[in-house]
Design a protein around this nucleic acid. Sequence first.
DNA 1: ATCTCTTAGTAAACCGCTTTAGTATGTTTA
DNA 2: TAAACATACTAAAGCGGTTTACTAAGAGAT
Lengths: 335, 335
Amino acid sequence: MHLNRFSSFLVRPSIKTIAEQSGVSKTTVSFVLNGRGNEKNISAETQKRVLDIAQRLNYQPNHLARSLSMGRSYTIGFVVPDISNPFFSKIARLVEHYAEERGYSVMVASTDEKPEKEQKILTAFTNRQIDGVIIAPTTELVSSKIANLPMVNFDRNFNDKDDNFVTINNSETANQLTQKLIGKGCQKIGLVGLSSFLPNINERIDGYKEALTNNGLFINQSLIIDVNTNLIKQDVESAIHQLLKEEVDGFLFLNNVLAAEGIWLVNKHYPQLIDKIKFASFDNLDVFDYAKPKVTSALQPGDEIARNCVEMLFKQIEDKEQSGSIRLSTTIIER
Amino acid sequence: MHLNRFSSFLVRPSIKTIAEQSGVSKTTVSFVLNGRGNEKNISAETQKRVLDIAQRLNYQPNHLARSLSMGRSYTIGFVVPDISNPFFSKIARLVEHYAEERGYSVMVASTDEKPEKEQKILTAFTNRQIDGVIIAPTTELVSSKIANLPMVNFDRNFNDKDDNFVTINNSETANQLTQKLIGKGCQKIGLVGLSSFLPNINERIDGYKEALTNNGLFINQSLIIDVNTNLIKQDVESAIHQLLKEEVDGFLFLNNVLAAEGIWLVNKHYPQLIDKIKFASFDNLDVFDYAKPKVTSALQPGDEIARNCVEMLFKQIEDKEQSGSIRLSTTIIER
DNA sequence: ATCTCTTAGTAAACCGCTTTAGTATGTTTA
DNA sequence: TAAACATACTAAAGCGGTTTACTAAGAGAT
C-alpha cells in the first residue's frame, strides 16, 4: 500500500475508526451512517453515539470504496465534440446542475469529432466505472453499446433505432429559417453545413430544400457546401468566396461555429455587401443580440435538452428502463 | 454485494480471471500488466501468456479498485463560477487536453460564485478522492486547505501567500485598455466591474485609475460601478443608464459577461450613441471580431493559463512540490 | 558439502466500504 | 415449558486491484 496524502500527519477517519471509538462493529456504523439504523434494529442510543462520533471526527466517506463495493460510482460522463463550443458548454452547465441534484458528479471530455479519441475517452470513463454517459457522438459507438453502458445521445444519433435520444426538429427548423430568409426577399440562398454524414445535419439540409421547393425556388447543389470539421477556417473561407461568386443573397449556416466564422469573413472581405445579404443560423449565440449584421437564429432549448438527457439516463441507470427519442422544438429568433 | 450491470449476462474479466486462465497468481498478473514483469523476474513465456490472455479477454482494469488501493484516482477537478462562460469553457477544454496527456480525467463543476456551493462541490470531489483541483475560487477555501488537497488557483486568489496561482497582469492590462480609450479621445470613462472584493478585480480597478492619473484625468468614484454577480442583468442596466447620464464617452468592462450585456444594452437603449462611444473589455469574445460596435479587448492567454495550471498541479501531486505564482501577459486587441 | 545468489514466482494483507448470514439474549405465544 | 419471534447487534466475505514478505529450486562459489 502506498501512503495516502494524509497519512504523514493526519489520518482521514474511516468507518473503522468510528467503530473502534464507539465500541460497535463496522457493520453497525455503516448501517447507521446510511440511515438504515432503524430498519436494522440499531438502538436509538447506539445510533446517536455513532453519529456524534462521526460528526466529531468530521467523517467523510470514501466514495471510491463505496463505489467499488456497490458497483456504482455516482458519476456520469458528458462527452461532446468540443466543450468550449457555447452550445455544448451551456448544456454541460445544466447537465451538471441536474446531475448534482441527484448526487452525481460529472466528468467531461471533448472528442474533437475524432472516433478514436471518442473511443479512448469512453474506455477511460468506463474503466473509471461511470454509471452512464450523455454524448453527442461522432460515430456509431458499437463497442460501447456492447459493454452495455447506459447512454443517452443528444444532438445526433447513429443508431437505426431511435433509442435514448434527445434532439430537435431539425428539418422543420431549417425549413423555418430558410422561409424567413425568403420572406426577407432572398432568392438565392447559400447553405454552409458540415459533416453531412451526420443524420441531424442531413435533416437540416432536407428542411432547407423543402422550403426552397415550397416557394418555387430551385435547389442548386453548388449552393450547398459541406465544410470539413478539421478545416473549418479554410473551408468556410472558400465557401464564402464561392457562394458570393454565385451571387447568393442569403446565407443559412448549419451551426453557431460556421455562422460566427462566416459572418466574420463576409464582414472582412465584403463589407459593402453586409447590409444587402441576410443571415440565418442554427443555434443562437448571445452576441447575435447586439452584433451587426442581424442574424435570424434558431435557439435550441438547452435547458430541456439537458433535463431530458439526465432524466433518460437516470431512467436507464436506476430503473433499467430504456426510453424512446424526444424531439424538442427550437425557437426562431428573428432579428 | 450488488450485482453489477454486467453480471446478468457478461462478467467483466478481472485479474483473477486472467490468473485462473493462465495458471499463475493474481500477483504475477498484476506485475505483468503493469509492465513490471522483468523487474519482478517473471519469465518471458509467462509474461506473454498473461498478456495474450488479457488481450483475448479484452481485459480492462477497474480504475476504482486501483485508485482505492493506490490512494490515487488519476482524476482532477476543475471548479469555476460558470463553465458556460466562454472564458472558463475554453480553459476547461485545454485543461482537459493537458490532463488527458498524462492519463488523468477531469470532473467539472460550477460554483455560481456561491461559497456554500463551492464547499459542497469540493467535498463531493474530495470524497471521490480526486488527486487535485484547479479552481477559480469564490472564497477563501480555508477548510479545503486544511484537508491538504493539491490545488491551483487561477483567475483569482485569496491567499495572502501567492502560492500555486496562475494569473494575468491585471493592473497593467487595465491600464493599457484605459490608455487605448484615452488615445481614442475619451475623457470620461465609465468602469463597469463586479465583485470588487476579488483581488484580481481590484487590480484591474487600480490599473484603470493609474491610467487616468497618468493622463491628467480625474478619478470620479461615481463612474466606477460595482455590479452584483447575482443580479448582472439588472445591475448592468442601471449602470449603463447611470453612466450615460453622467455623459461618459467610453466604457471599460471588467469581464466578457459585463461587456456583452453592456454593449447589448447601449445598442438597445441608446443606438444613437453607439458610434460615439468607445468600448473596451477584459477578456476577448470571438464575436468582437465581427460585431459592431468595435470593442478593444484584452485576450487572456488561455492556453498558457491552462498549461501552467496543469503543470503546477502535477508538480504538487507527483513531486509534492509547491509552486509560486505565475503572472502571464494579455494581448490587447485593438479594433 | 555447505553457503549464498539468482530466478521465478506466490500467499495474504490491505485500501474502505457494503451486505449476507449469522448469533445471543430476552419476550411472547401455544 | 418449549417453540417461535423480536431485538440488537457482528463476523466475515466480497468489490478488484497493489504490495510486502515470503518460498522453492537451481547455480556458483568456497
